[in-house]
Nucleic acid binder design. Structure first.
Length: 807
DNA sequence: CAGTGAGCGAGCTTCCGCTTGACTT
């Protein structure tokens, strides 16, 4: 009914008054404010010339970035401010609002969105008469027009729930972090979300440390039917694991020359259903598994797809598809795959605390099977397209056949199974992957030859392979997101930033754990003979998984000991429940905060005052045989360190940093003492001293005020003078290549070859050279001119934060 | 980018959730 564009030119708004009668008013000047500029652009197209659509770019007001900004004495009143980078935007919004006859606050329909609407109302100085609050769940013309026909008021209860959320997070973060600065080291942080994320990783690591692997024997037979035309072989696995070599051997003995026969056969239909369309969290997981993207990579690529209009909004916890989307997807399946593959499905979100302000992530135009863009964009789009299509497709129908193969005289039996896909359904386009790829297991997708109960079967080969139970897997970025979502902790917009934060704080790192070699035994029965062979495999190797650092472990244990309430996995779920009560108008927002603060704040004060006998996380290693002084390890201002002696003992204590790969929990006295052998002098080269040491960036060689990193294949303890000199000369050679040109007029000016091409370095400042310049022919005067030109000047310092964890 | 740390000291660090910048030394 809203299809024709002409209709919009005469667009009007229907209101109902108290008597229920409708009247229509006409307004030419409307301002709609949404959160995202891409959304604004789309909506503007739907609404026509009487509507101007602007974006608030998220929140326009917040607590001060550095101050506590909560008046705890007066009902926890938050003190808001407009951040500097938003001032210009607010000015523009204010002006547009003043020019408009009606302002429509169209931020998302969730807690944060409602708060954004309220902040806009306050900051823009809007009035009740010329403001309306509208919400829509999908960006389609009918949905938006419907929303405009059904405006409402700002929901102050929902706003209060947001304020409670904001204030609570500020209290926890800004009261807890300083305790860490005082007790552990400066610039650390704690928070409702990040601290629990770290806890998950620390706990998993402790499980792995405590894990004792158990051996077992897995018995697999390659068989074929004795009678019948088919000589096709099939695999069958023993129905139980054997505990040791003796029982494996005894089983193989029983199988030697045995007459196997088919026992019962079961044929079961099996049904597989497609996964729901993507949310932020499931997109991040699948993109990690299928495309190898990091969580933040996925979000960056998705953002570009969204901005170029290819997909719907990428930060969502909803699996819902709009009715319009469902019908176009259905049409697409009908036309390109076939009617029998179509099954319309409506998905409902089951995750805790989901707020469902948006649709699921899907292509905006499903008929577009592929898009133009970078390789990454294409691949992510394809993934989204397939998942969306599959979500509206029929179940796959599978027939699973299971046959027991009996061993005479034994109670164990072999089990062979085969699957036949009767109807592929959604599998035709999309198969969801899983985290637990059990590497050794067979594919299990084989088919079985025709057989009947009582048929005799012969074994070509039976192997009993020694296996070991697997330690629990470490978290990946994606599996951590999954876990956080299950616990209801964090929101779609924060999963990626949270993972960056805990790495930037050096609580966890993407580690590389070297595996260890392990021998295992394989017993084989073939041609009536049992043979045994030894094989080796590496186990426990892990790459790119999240591993806690020493600092992460110490901070976590400290928080668990003294602030168990915050570290409780259910803390967020509990307070979410309270926020819901606030949103429903059952309780006042600051009552709950007051109760929390009355307990939390004194606890913070007490812990802060606590005189601890040892520094948090400190461990005594023993006595230094040379000096007789005690040796201990702990977290220092710059990370983990070893210390000989104590502050109150005789003489100043000595310090040394731990090296990469060493941990305060596992380092031995011997290893610790070794660290004090550095720095050491190797000898002389070209008349000055060559020494080695370990700095913040790892082992180095120092010679005449210059440093050269020591590569992994040498140890700083073992390196010889010759090797060190070779490193120095290597570095000189590469530096010589770096310098394109120098000038006699001014030694401070150099033309250098860098990572991004040739540039000019003058008094430690870098200047870019205009494109098309023949750099080899540059004269001194030309260089000075380039430096003088504003356009080539180095950009003013940005407040760069470390975005990647240090290597 | 490079050897830090044990005490009368300056001043700083920090949260979670909404949104996109301007940036390639």
């Amino acid at each position: 009914m809203w299809e024709g564009d002409d209709r919009l030119l005469y667009f009007s708004v229907t209101h109902s008054n108290k008597t229920g009668a409708h009247y229509i008013i006409y307004m030419p000047n409307n301002l709609v404010i949404v959160e995202s500029p891409a959304k604004a652009k789309t909506i503007e197209k739907f609404l026509g010339k009487d509507f101007k659509v602007m974006s608030s770019y998220g929140h326009i007001r917040d607590l001060h970035k550095k101050d506590f900004s909560i008046d705890t004495a007066h009902g926890f009143k938050p003190i808001y401010e407009i951040p500097a980078e938003k001032k210009e935007l607010v000015k523009e919004l204010k002006k547009a609002a003043a020019d408009a006859d009606m302002v429509w606050l169209a931020s998302d329909e969730d807690r944060e969105g409602e708060a954004i609407a309220w902040h806009l109302y306050e900051v823009l100085g809007l009035t009740h008469e010329k403001t309306k609050r509208i919400v829509f769940h999908e960006i389609t013309k009918p949905a938006i027009l419907y929303a405009i026909e059904h405006p409402r008021e700002i929901d102050y209860n929902l706003v209060d729930a947001q304020q409670a959320r904001r204030v609570l997070d500020r209290i926890v973060g800004f009261e807890l972090s300083p305790v860490l600065w005082k007790k552990i080291k400066p610039a650390l942080s704690a928070g409702r979300v990040q601290s629990v994320a770290v806890r998950l990783i620390v706990e998993r690591e402790k499980e792995i440390e405590a894990f004792v692997s158990e051996q077992y024997y897995r018995v697999v037979a390659q068989m074929h039917c004795a009678e019948g035309a088919s000589k096709a072989t099939f695999d069958a696995e023993l129905n139980c694991r054997l505990h040791d070599a003796a029982s494996a051997k005894s089983l193989l003995e029983a199988c030697r020359g045995a007459k196997f026969s088919v026992g019962s056969i079961a044929v079961k239909p099996l049904k597989k259903s497609p996964a729901p369309p993507f949310t932020t969290s499931t997109l991040q997981q699948e993109a990690a598994r299928k495309l190898g993207f990091t969580v933040s990579q996925t979000m960056m690529v998705a953002q570009r797809l969204y901005e170029s209009g290819h997909i719907t909004y990428m930060r969502t916890d909803s699996v819902n598809l709009s009715s319009l989307a469902i019908s176009t997807i259905s049409e697409e399946i009908r036309n390109t795959i076939g009617e029998q593959y179509l099954k319309v499905r409506h998905y409902h979100t089951a995750t805790k605390g989901a707020q469902e302000a948006h649709e699921a992530i899907r292509p905006t135009y499903i008929s577009q099977h592929e898009i133009s863009g970078t390789a990454q964009e294409k691949r992510l789009y394809e993934l989204i397209w397939k998942r969306t299509i599959a979500s509206q497709m029929a179940d796959a129908q599978i027939e699973k056949t299971t046959a027991d193969i009996l061993i005479p005289g034994r109670k164990e039996r072999f089990v062979a199974s085969g699957e036949v896909i009767k109807f592929d359904g959604f599998l035709r386009v999309y198969i969801e992957t899983r985290d637990d790829e059990s590497s050794v297991d067979n594919e299990g997708n084989s088919t079985l030859p025709e057989m009947q109960s009582g048929d005799s079967v012969e074994a070509d080969k039976i192997t009993a392979m020694q296996r070991f139970t697997q330690q629990p897997p470490r978290y990946t970025e994606a599996s951590l997101v999954k876990k956080l979502e299950e616990l209801g902790i964090g929101r779609p917009s924060t999963y990626a930033p949270t993972i960056s934060t805990i790495q930037n704080r050096d609580y966890v790192e993407k580690g590389e754990k070297k595996g260890v070699e392990r021998k295992f035994e394989v017993l084989t029965l073939k041609d009536g003979k049992i043979t045994s062979s030894q094989k080796t495999e590496t186990t426990g190797a892990d790459k790119g998984k999240l591993i806690p650092t020493d600092v992460g472990m110490v901070v976590n244990d400290f928080l668990e000991d003294y602030f168990p309430q915050i570290m409780d996995y259910n803390f967020t779920a509990k307070i979410e429940h309270e926020f819901d009560e606030i949103a429903d108008g059952e309780v006042k927002w600051n009552d709950g905060i007051g109760k929390f603060y009355a307990e939390f704040h004194p606890n913070v004060e007490n812990v802060s005052k606590l005189r601890l006998e040892h520094k948090v996380g400190e461990r005594q290693l023993g006595i230094d045989p040379k000096s007789g002084r005690p040796v201990s390890v702990k977290i220092g201002r710059f990370g983990p360190l070893v210390q000989i002696g104590t502050a109150d003992g005789d003489g100043k204590p000595q310090f040394a940093s731990l090296q990469k790969g060493q941990s305060v929990n596992t380092i031995t006295l011997e290893e610790a003492l070794k660290l004090f052998e550095l720095p050491r002098t190797l000898g002389d080269f070209e008349g000055s001293e060559v020494s080695v040491g370990v700095g913040r960036f790892g082992p180095y060689v120092k010679h005449g005020g210059k440093y050269v990193s020591i590569p992994k294949d040498y140890s700083p303890q073992g390196i010889t003078l010759e090797q060190a000199v070779a490193l120095i000369e290597e570095k000189r050679a590469s530096e010589a290549k770096k310098v394109v040109k120098t000038f006699a007029e001014d030694p401070d000016l150099e033309v250098l070859n860098g990572r991004y091409g040739v540039y000019i370095c003058y008094k430690k400042q870098n200047y870019k050279i205009p494109k098309g310049t023949d750099t080899a022919a540059l004269t001194y005067e030309e260089c000075k001119a380039i430096i003088a030109d504003e356009a080539n000047a180095p950009k003013k310092k940005r407040t760069t934060r470390r975005t990647t964890a240090k290597k």
